[in-house]
């Protein structure tokens, strides 16, 4: 790992000044950034440690849920009112990473994590436009089982790995930064011809918190190749109100299928909670899917996951 400077900041103003320097990078829990440094994927000059800033709040009120950017994954996942009122968020967090990482990793850092595409993470020099702009994409003609089926470009087919981000999109959350407030669904960007930029945030811009409006019942379903400590092949977050076996309102977002959480933009109002009707109702959203040969299975898998998330209650770990 290359040598790097270090500055622990005491308030947000100091953080902003330091983070604006060229070569500066914010560090909170560090569970992602330490690895990016180890693998020389990123080589900042200065680590700006924001971990002691008072941004760890988890507040549930009549207007919804407020999460400080530095609230830890384990604390949010264990919070009784998050578990009861916003289960998709608790489930998404609890199904992420491992206990040790959830004890360090933060809300803001989770949203800022980078793709798990094997070529981006490779410890030898393989073409990857996200890692080395202009070098090409090894995944398109290589191992692309985990690749995106929506929103990819000729430059990059990587998916975003955050479970939390998918839940936030389904729950219509807002992300507050030092410069603006934006919908969670607009935080991450499509690769186009600039795949090295994962989010719309500017250099030095810092996430302060996440605001989630009061939510209908919600759930997060993660499909992966082992039962724990693995990223999603596909995942789905749903927030739905139903009555008499019929959906009144529903919002859903998919993970593991796109460079960003992928909102399922179909109107499900009036659709009965039965497999065949749900399959017919969500099918139009998959017409835009453009898989690679090795990732085609995700189209069927994702649709089954949506149906299952809407029809089967999903328990939190330890409460099933």
């Amino acid at each position: 790992m290359r040598d790097v400077g270090y500055l622990r900041v005491g308030d947000t103003a100091e953080a902003l000044t330091a983070a604006a320097r060229p070569g500066a990078r914010l560090i909170a829990g560090g569970t992602e950034l330490v690895n990016l440094l180890k693998e020389r994927i990123e080589q900042p000059d200065l680590l700006v440690d924001i971990s002691r800033l008072p941004l760890t709040d988890i507040t549930v009120g009549p207007d919804g849920l407020h999460l400080g950017a530095l609230a830890r994954m384990s604390d949010v996942a264990a919070h009784p009112e998050v578990r009861s009122g916003y289960p998709a968020i608790a489930q998404a967090l609890e199904l992420s990473a491992s206990p040790q990482l959830r004890n360090m990793a933060t809300m803001g850092g989770n949203l800022m994590q980078r793709t798990r595409c094997p070529y981006f993470r490779a410890d030898h020099d393989l073409p990857c436009n996200k890692r080395r702009p202009g070098s090409g994409c090894s995944a398109i003609d290589g191992d692309h089982r985990a690749a995106a089926i929506f929103g990819a470009s000729e430059s990059c087919v990587a998916t975003h790995p955050s479970d939390l981000a998918v839940a936030l999109v389904a729950l219509d959350a807002q992300v507050r930064t030092t410069a603006r407030t934006l919908p969670a669904r607009d935080l991450h960007r499509l690769p186009g011809d600039q795949p090295h930029r994962d989010t719309v945030l500017d250099h030095g811009e810092m996430i302060l918190g996440i605001d989630v409006p009061v939510s209908p019942p919600s759930a997060y379903l993660k499909v992966r190749e082992r039962g724990s400590y693995e990223f999603a092949l596909v995942s789905v977050a749903v927030a739905a109100e139903t009555s008499g076996g019929v959906i009144r309102t529903a919002r859903a977002a998919l993970g593991g299928v796109a460079p960003k959480p992928w909102p399922l933009d179909v109107d499900l109002a009036g659709v009965p909670l039965r497999r065949d009707e749900l399959r017919a109702a969500i099918a139009p959203a998959f017409a835009a899917a453009r898989p690679l040969p090795g990732s085609e299975f995700k189209i069927e898998l994702a649709q089954r996951a949506v149906v299952r998330a809407l029809t089967k209650p999903i328990g939190l770990m330890g409460e099933t």
Binding site: I27, G30, V34, S98, Q100, N103
Partner: peptide, 26 residues
Amino acid sequence: DTTNCGACTVLCDGLPVKSCTMFAVQ
């Protein structure tokens, strides 16, 4: 050394963390 195996687990303020994925300054 890649955050996967957990052999380096220590308690930090009572909670298990991976000491290979944390700088000493933290």
